[in-house]
Structures are given as structure tokens and as C-alpha cells.
Design a protein around this nucleic acid. Sequence first.
DNA 1: TTACAAACATACTATTTAGTATGTTGGCAG
DNA 2: CTGCCAACATACTAAATAGTATGTTTGTAA
Lengths: 196, 196
Amino acid sequence: MMSKAATTKKLILNKSLELIYKNGYQSTSIDEIIATTNVTKGAFFYHFKSKEEMGLAIINEIFFPTVIDGLVHPLEKVDNIIDEIYKMLHSILFDHSAFNIAYGCPVVNLVEEMSPVSESFRKALSRLLLRVQQALVTALETAQRNGQIRKDVNCKRVATFILSGYCGVRNMGKLFGKESYSNFLREIKFYLNQLK
Amino acid sequence: MMSKAATTKKLILNKSLELIYKNGYQSTSIDEIIATTNVTKGAFFYHFKSKEEMGLAIINEIFFPTVIDGLVHPLEKVDNIIDEIYKMLHSILFDHSAFNIAYGCPVVNLVEEMSPVSESFRKALSRLLLRVQQALVTALETAQRNGQIRKDVNCKRVATFILSGYCGVRNMGKLFGKESYSNFLREIKFYLNQLK
DNA sequence: TTACAAACATACTATTTAGTATGTTGGCAG
DNA sequence: CTGCCAACATACTAAATAGTATGTTTGTAA
């Protein structure tokens, strides 16, 4: 059972994330957050000493666990990595109901918006993305040792490439919708199969 | 020779773009723009009836010509498309001195930030990106007719994939710097060569 | 030259912003 | 029970914000 205070904090974080997902971090005001949560300003600033602290809490307390559970762990024990990466991309692009194509991916959005203007955000987000990249690299290297991937493949480069594609297609989707996603998926599948 | 008024307008647009590139559109205030340009508020609102109109003018009067001249036209008459696309990506990522890795690409940034929150921006930006995509598709199709690309390649999908990769690596670069760019370039080269 | 509109300048406003100061309440250790 | 502090609530502030109202200047057509 979660304490009342912890519940309030979670409520603030979740609603804030929702608003930030739709409007961006800098355009989401604390007044708007407290209005939609029915939490008072006093409560907000009791839990977070500043807006920035709240933003960083979203990264560390929501993004991190979600990404670790949803991407990093699933990549750890899998026998057919190539197929699994494709499936994961497909599933994250199409199946996740929390996502809205028009709004893209909350993590990617925050990288875009905040990493150039705040070193704290950049560091927190780069830790997160590094974690995902590392998980991909490790998985690919294992597959390489098992002979599922050619020996001359540079796993780190492949990981960067996959991540880039994912970030980018979230952007394209904002303009052109689902079609971007399926086009991307078809080509990444082709690319991934060439690694075998 | 440009009229004085046209010069002022250009000055506003160029400086605004600079500020938006660094801080984002919504976080760039008109007060900041007129401070750094030494243009008065009266002049600003004489040339643009609102901040949004100025933002759209950046897309239509700066992005469009730049992209048409720098990407669309170069793609029109070229004999080795695969190599040319790679060279263009390399050059746009590494050679262009107006770009700063930490800030990404101004067009991509604006897509990320504004297309979810403003239909006018979304439309203007989607026209722009569609133009680039179409140029890629046409070039690829020509190459396909000339036998430089396999017949079973879906040119539109490839174009989407390349664009996605570009958008995405601009994002990755914000976190990890140049290394993302070179990693991306190596893999896209591999991908492109598989189309032959 | 002079009229007059285009091109700018200045001063203002209503709202929104993050953050603060100063309260009040509710639960539970002693 | 009671004192005390975590957990909230309310009222405020100074700065920033997009935009407006009302000017003045400047080029140029007649």
C-alpha cells in the first residue's frame, strides 16, 4: 500500500507527463498541472523544489523503470535477437495504447526539447538512452557469438542505427501518421536480416 | 538591391531562427527577438501580425528555399544516386557550419515541437518534408529504371527510411555527439549498398 | 514641395509564469 | 490526550509574455 504522500507525488508525475507529452515540457505550466490534478501549489512545491526537479523525476522515476522493464530486461534473454528487435520495434510503435502517433514518443520528445537547453536533462536522458543502447549492443554481441549475426558487424554501430531510426520515425509519424511507421518497419526488417 | 523594409524583415527572420534553433520556438520570446535584433516591437508587428505568422514565415521563406536549393535540386540530375544520397547525408551532417550538433537540425526540431500543437505548423512542415521525400523517391525510381537499384525495392519506403534515420540521428547527436553521426553514416551506407 | 502611406518607435496592458510566504490540517509517537 | 511535523492549502509577488494603441519618421508619387 502506498502512503498518501507517495500517491500525491505519483499523481503529479503522471499528470505532468501526460501534459508534457502533449505540449512539451517548457510549455507545460505548473499552474496547468495543479489545475488538472486538483493538487495545490503548496503540495506541488512540497514534493518538488522546482519545475526542473519534477522534470528530472519523470525521467528517473517513470521513464527509467518503464524502459528497463519494457526494453532492457526483454532483451536480456532471447534466442533470436534479430527477430526480437523487429518485434519490439513493431510492438512499441503499434501496440502501446499510451502512445499517440501525433505526439510521438515522450522520451524522444524530451531529448529533442531539453537536452540542448539543460545540462541536467541532457545527462539524465543520455544515461537512459545509453542504457537502451548498451542493452542492444550486449544482445547483438551475444547473437554474434552464437553465429546468428555476421562477424564483421559492428554491434555498437548497429545499435545506434536502430535507435536513430526509432527516434526519427517517431518524428515522421507526427507529420505523416501510421504509414511512416509501417514503411520504417519494413525497411528496418530488411536491414536487420542483412546482418545475418 | 533589397528594400530597407525587406532587409528588416529578413533580419528578424534570421535572428529569430537563430534563437529558435537554440531554445525552441515556444521558448523564444518576441521580446528576446527584438532585443537581439535591435528592432522595435512596432517594426516586428508591422512585418508579422503574430508570432505564429513569423514562425510560418521561417518555414516558407527560409526553410523552403534552403531545402529546395540544397537537397531537392541536387537530387534531380545525378547519375549515381546511392553514392549521392550518402554524400549528401555526410555533408549535411558534418560540413554545414550553420549546424551545431548539440542543437540538432532546425527543421527536425520544429517538426518535433510544433507539429503536435499547431495544425498550421504541421501543414507547412509536412509540405516541406513531403517535398524532400518526393525528391528522394523520384531519384530512386530513376536509378531503378537505370538498373542501379534492384527492381523489388520500394522507393517510397526507402525514402521514408532514410529520412527517419536522418531525423533520428539528429536527436542522438544531441546526446552523444559526433560519434552518433559517424555510426549512422556507416550503417546507412551499408543499407544503401544493399539496394543495388 | 507636399501629401500620404509605408515603415518604424514607444508606452502601455492583461495574462501567465515560476516560485514564495505564511498559513492550516491530519496522523501518530510519546 | 497532546504536541509536533509531514503534508498540504491560500494568497501573494516579480518577472516575462504576446499583443495593442498611438504615436513619429521616411521615402516617394504627383
